[in-house]
Amino acid sequence: GTEDLKEEAKKALKKGDKERAKRALKKAGLSEDQIKKFIKEVL
């Protein structure tokens, strides 16, 4: 589900894998702006 994808994105970001995080967030249905915001909040 969406929460799982967001968790996956957080883990990817902590490993420095932004591309993987972006893919997971796109799958979760987030827009580009939401993805940028999510990444900023996590990092």
Rank of each mutant, 00 (worst) to 15 (best):
A21S: 02
K11N: 12
D4V: 10
E8S: 06
K15E: 15
F38G: 00
K6D: 03
G29T: 01
R20V: 07
A12E: 04
E7T: 08
K18N: 11
K22C: 12
K40A: 15
A28Q: 03
I39N: 01
R23H: 09
Q34E: 14
K27N: 07
E32M: 08
E41D: 12
E19N: 07
R20F: 11
A9Q: 01
E3Y: 07
A21C: 06
G1E: 13
A9D: 01
S31A: 05
L25H: 00
R20N: 09
D33Y: 09
A24P: 00
A24W: 11
E41V: 06
K6L: 15
A12D: 04
E8F: 12
A9H: 01
R20W: 13
F38T: 01
I35T: 03
K15P: 01
I35P: 00
R20H: 10
E19T: 07
D17M: 06
E7K: 08
E3W: 06
K6M: 15
L30C: 05
T2A: 12
A21P: 00
E7S: 08
K11F: 06
S31E: 05
K40V: 10
K10Q: 06
D4K: 12
E8I: 12
I35W: 03
K11P: 01
Q34N: 05
L25A: 00
I39Q: 02
T2G: 09
E8D: 06
A12T: 02
L30F: 13
R23L: 11
D4P: 06
L30A: 02
A9E: 01
E7A: 10
A28K: 02
K22S: 08
K6I: 15
E32Q: 07
E3Q: 10
D33K: 10
E19P: 06
F38P: 00
K15D: 14
V42N: 11
L13Q: 01
K37D: 14
D4E: 12
Q34H: 04
G1R: 12
K36L: 14
T2L: 14
K37E: 15
A24D: 04
S31G: 05
E7C: 06
A21R: 01
A12N: 04
L13S: 01
E32V: 08
A12C: 07
E8T: 07
K6F: 15
E3D: 12
L30P: 00
E7G: 06
I39D: 00
A12P: 01
K22P: 00
I39T: 03
R23N: 10
E41A: 12
Q34I: 03
K11V: 12
D33H: 07
E41I: 08
D17Y: 07
D4W: 15
K27D: 09
A12K: 02
K27R: 12
K10N: 04
G16F: 05
L25K: 00
K37V: 11
K10S: 06
K6R: 10
K36T: 12
K40L: 14
D33A: 12
L43S: 06
D4I: 10
I39G: 00
A21E: 00
T2H: 12
E8G: 03
K22T: 13
R23S: 11
L5C: 06
R20I: 07
K40M: 14
D33I: 08
K26G: 05
K11T: 11
L13W: 07
L30S: 00
K37N: 13
E3F: 08
A28D: 02
K40Y: 15
A9I: 06
Q34M: 07
L43E: 09
E7L: 10
D17S: 04
K40I: 13
A9S: 02
L30R: 00
K26T: 09
E19H: 07
E41S: 10
K40E: 15
L5I: 05
K18I: 15
E19Q: 09
D4C: 12
L43W: 09
D33M: 08
Q34V: 03
K18R: 13
L25W: 01
V42C: 08
F38M: 03
K26P: 00
G1I: 13
L13R: 01
A9W: 03
E7F: 07
K10Y: 12
A24N: 05
A12M: 10
E8Q: 10
Q34G: 05
F38D: 00
R23D: 11
E41R: 09
L5S: 04
K11M: 12
S31P: 04
E41N: 09
K6G: 03
L5N: 04
D17Q: 08
S31Q: 04
D33S: 11
D17P: 01
K11I: 13
L30K: 01
D33E: 13
R23V: 12
L43D: 05
I35H: 00
K11D: 12
A28I: 06
I39S: 01
K14R: 13
A24M: 15
K14V: 10
E8P: 01
I39L: 07
A21F: 04
A12W: 15
T2I: 14
L13I: 10
F38V: 03
K6A: 06
R23K: 10
E41Y: 09
D17F: 08
K6E: 08
K22Y: 15
K14W: 12
G16M: 04
K36V: 13
E19D: 09
L5M: 06
L5F: 10
A28W: 04
F38S: 01
K37A: 15
L5R: 03
F38Y: 05
V42M: 10
K27G: 05
K18T: 15
V42L: 09
E19R: 08
L5P: 06
L25I: 01
L5H: 06
I39F: 11
K27L: 14
Q34D: 13
V42Y: 14
E8A: 08
E8W: 11
G1H: 12
L30G: 00
L43F: 09
K18C: 13
E7Y: 07
E32K: 07
A12I: 04
A24F: 15
K27V: 06
D17H: 07
L5D: 04
A28E: 03
L43K: 05
D33N: 08
E3S: 09
A9M: 03
G29Y: 01
K14S: 09
A24S: 06
K26V: 11
E19A: 11
S31W: 02
F38R: 01
K27A: 14
E41L: 10
S31F: 03
K6H: 09
D4G: 10
V42E: 07
E41Q: 11
K26L: 13
K14Y: 14
A12F: 14
R20Q: 11
L30H: 02
Q34R: 03
K36S: 11
D4Y: 13
D4Q: 12
E32A: 09
F38Q: 01
G16C: 06
G16R: 04
G1A: 13
L13K: 01
K15M: 15
L43H: 05
L5Y: 11
K40S: 14
K14A: 13
K11Q: 14
I35A: 04
T2D: 11
T2Q: 11
A28F: 06
L13H: 01
L30E: 01
A21W: 04
G29S: 02
K22M: 15
E3V: 10
K15Y: 11
K6S: 04
Q34C: 05
T2S: 11
Q34P: 00
A28Y: 06
A21H: 00
K14Q: 13
I35R: 02
E7D: 09
K6W: 15
D17I: 02
G29R: 03
I39R: 01
T2K: 10
K27I: 08
K22I: 15
K22N: 07
V42D: 03
K36W: 11
K18F: 15
A12G: 02
K22V: 15
K36M: 13
K22R: 14
K37G: 09
E19F: 07
V42I: 11
A21M: 04
R23W: 09
A12V: 03
G1K: 12
D33G: 07
L43G: 05
G29P: 00
K18P: 11
E32W: 10
K37P: 01
L5G: 04
K10T: 08
L5W: 14
D33L: 08
K10P: 01
E19Y: 08
K36F: 10
K40N: 14
G29W: 01
K22Q: 11
A12S: 06
E7N: 10
L25Y: 01
K27S: 08
Q34T: 04
A9N: 01
Q34A: 10
S31Y: 02
L30D: 00
K37S: 13
K10M: 12
K37Q: 15
K26M: 12
K40D: 15
G16S: 03
L13E: 00
I35S: 02
L5V: 05
K36Y: 12
L30M: 12
D17G: 03
D17A: 04
I39A: 02
A24Q: 06
K36D: 15
E41F: 09
R20S: 14
L25F: 02
R23F: 06
E7V: 07
A24Y: 15
A21D: 00
K14M: 14
D33W: 09
E32G: 06
G29E: 02
T2R: 10
L13P: 00
K26D: 05
E3L: 10
L13F: 04
D33V: 08
S31H: 04
T2W: 14
K14I: 13
A28G: 04
K27M: 13
